[in-house]
Design a binder for these strands. Sequence first.
DNA 1: AAGATTTATCTGTAAATACAAATAATTGTA
DNA 2: TACAATTATTTGTATTTACAGATAAATCTT
Lengths: 150, 150
Amino acid sequence: MGPLDVYLPYLLNRAGARIATAFSEEVRPLGATLQIWRVLAALHDRDRRRMGDLSETTSIEVSTLTRLVDAMEKRGLVVRRRDAADARAVTLEVTAAGRRLTRRLTPIAERYEAVALRGFEARETEALKASLRRLYANMGALTVHRRRPG
Amino acid sequence: MGPLDVYLPYLLNRAGARIATAFSEEVRPLGATLQIWRVLAALHDRDRRRMGDLSETTSIEVSTLTRLVDAMEKRGLVVRRRDAADARAVTLEVTAAGRRLTRRLTPIAERYEAVALRGFEARETEALKASLRRLYANMGALTVHRRRPG
DNA sequence: AAGATTTATCTGTAAATACAAATAATTGTA
DNA sequence: TACAATTATTTGTATTTACAGATAAATCTT
């Protein structure tokens, strides 16, 4: 069988964990976390999104996201609004404070990216990212997202 | 800034999470988890390892590992022994039952690997794994492993 | 060899996370 | 339009995880 580091899930997990830990420590003084960063980045890309949409694009569980957004709202980073078109849904909007924090976090995220990819050619970086997207898509076919057991 | 999926930590995390979830669901009926698999795989590669060593190679926190090993020991998959050479240390040894479970888990892990990498050339797979190892090493230089604050 | 320091593991406890049930609003259908 | 089914989010709660402190043994220093 050989050592553990021939297995892809393990390689992914440990690399991901290291970056996540390092980034988290760095942004803690700003009162931010990796997940707050993800939500802000997603909203920066497209504002006024639904909870469910955000959960999907950030890969944060909806129930986790609810409580995370509670905290972010309390800190004045975002505001929740009932969707005008569909009152079941809630949309999130970043505030000026949220945008300020986003502007502070973005260069940190980019710096970590640079550190993680030190020594990589641009071509290698793109190949890596492309592979990770493919891999995610491959697994998506399998992960049937738990429909009712009919 | 653009969408979230240009960021490496995010790409790593979501790909890793998907594989982990899918694998975990599949091995649950066998009473196993991803972490149990990691410990067994590490011990299969080299048996009678210390807790600290295992923590390092599996990337499972020592305190988490302690309780995980409690459970595994209770299930008869491994036995703890005081290290003869250094009585501070505990070494882990797989039992026959542990080896049986390992033999059942290995093909599942390999199948998941194949699914995740469907459509990848052997060369691409190796490039991906190599990149992930480099990335981990790059971050290792930074992650100072929390020494005392002197 | 006694005392201080370091190393290895374990335990207490708080925070993070996720599944399932509850709530609330919409849409489809008779 | 009323009833059932579906969709979106939130809340309850159990599990997981990790940090910090406790315990115990080895090593280093004088």
